[in-house]
């Protein structure tokens, strides 16, 4: 049986991290959480990740830095940004760099689903 796609979640806020993981899992995907961009980049799950959900504002490397870091390494992971403080400029930047979604918190279930469908559909 082909295992469910792995969704990696990066957010410094534990509530968000956990609730997002819950939602992703309730949708039938595997979920792995990381408290920071550095933690994710240092993990062995980068290659397995089918889709990345990351916060934008984080201490240390932020979501945009993480996206750029992955591109620099030649790793292409469909990425969904979530933020408590949406900014048009950041959104544009992220979307240009190939993001599949940019969601303000609180986001609706449907908007996340749509983004996940886009992300996973494009990858296979």
């Amino acid at each position: 049986m082909r295992s469910a796609p792995l969704i990696s979640i990066v957010d410094d806020d534990e509530s968000i991290r956990e609730s997002t993981r819950g939602l992703v899992r309730s949708l039938g995907y595997q979920a792995e959480t990381f408290a920071s961009a550095e933690e994710f980049l240092g993990s062995d799950r980068v290659g397995d990740t089918s889709c990345l959900i990351t916060d934008v504002q984080m201490p240390g490397l932020n979501g945009i830095d993480l996206q750029r870091g992955l591109i620099d390494r030649g790793v292409q992971i469909p990425t969904i940004f979530i933020t408590a403080f949406p900014e048009e400029r950041t959104r544009l930047h992220a979307m240009k760099a190939g993001a599949v979604g940019y969601l303000g918190k609180p986001f609706t279930e449907e908007s996340l689903l749509k983004c996940l469908d886009t992300a996973l559909g494009s990858s296979g």
Binding site: I16, A84, F85, K105
Partner: peptide, 28 residues
């Protein structure tokens, strides 16, 4: 206000997401 928004939107976001997830688990 920005910082207030951020501070409040975080738990709110978590609540909404959590609610959605809970509903999902029950709807299976």
């Amino acid at each position: 206000t920005a910082s207030i928004a951020h501070e409040i939107n975080q738990p709110l976001g978590a609540i909404v997401t959590g609610g959605s997830a809970g509903l999902r688990w029950l709807a299976n």
